[in-house]
Design a binder for these strands. Structure first.
Lengths: 119, 119
DNA sequence: TTAACACATGAACACATGCTCATATGTTAG
DNA sequence: CTAACATATGAGCATGTGTTCATGTGTTAA
């Protein structure tokens, strides 16, 4: 006569009504996925530094490489990730490719994150 | 007579003054690290779902386990990560441990992230 | 005390991630 | 055309991360 719940939790401990309510209010799984994806992209030391550099000015790959003191390949790889996430956009000018932040959402997100960090 | 710059970039391509200026304006390395850390913690499907669940109500581990339909060990491990990042706090009540969001920074951060995602 | 339960945690494993190295692409100068 | 250069990209490797399984800890009830 047991409910066919998972076996770890006996249903005794949980407030079933609250669980059900939360389940209804929860965002969709796809949304969770996208959100986690966005934060994951922001959650890397190198990428945060790139974003921070672009905070102030449009920069070409070469500039970024110099600022981060990393090799060009590593920077390009990370720029690719940021591009895929639509966090940065790029513009070609002759041999150079200039990168900049794609929208101010990111700027705001990072700023807000900063508040949490530097409390 | 070459500058002792890295060899990838000949200094010809970069706007040295801008690079220098950006270098000055950049946040400290420790800050980058903390910021990346915070976002990395938020950048996981399971953890985002936990946070989203706690958006609405304080919940015990057992509740969360039921909501996420995951095994209790996995949930506990992730709660530990969230605790370490000061994203959630917990409160003991008898055999149960109730978790809730530690501050509203996180709520705001996730909300802002949501705006970027659902454009 | 002992049994039952909620939760925490260490070890092990599969998989993802970031870097480096080598090389490819595309543009400009000569 | 070819050489030089800025950037992109694939492969390989070392390290990090999330889950599961087994077990430990702490609390309540009998």
């Amino acid at each position: 006569m047991e409910q066919d719940k998972n076996d770890t939790c006996q249903e005794l401990c949980i407030n079933a009504s609250i669980v059900e309510e939360v389940n209804e209010k929860m965002m969709e799984n796809a949304t969770h996925h996208d959100l986690a994806s966005l934060f994951k992209t922001l959650g890397d030391h190198t990428r945060i530094r790139i974003i921070n550099a672009l905070y102030h000015s449009e920069l070409c790959v070469c500039d970024i490489t110099a600022i981060l003191k990393m090799n060009q390949s590593a920077v390009s790889h990370q720029l690719r990730v940021l591009r895929a996430a639509k966090i940065v956009k790029n513009r070609k000018e002759g041999k150079n490719v200039y990168y900049s932040l794609d929208d101010e959402h990111i700027y705001n997100l990072v700023s807000l994150g900063l508040e949490h960090v530097s409390e």
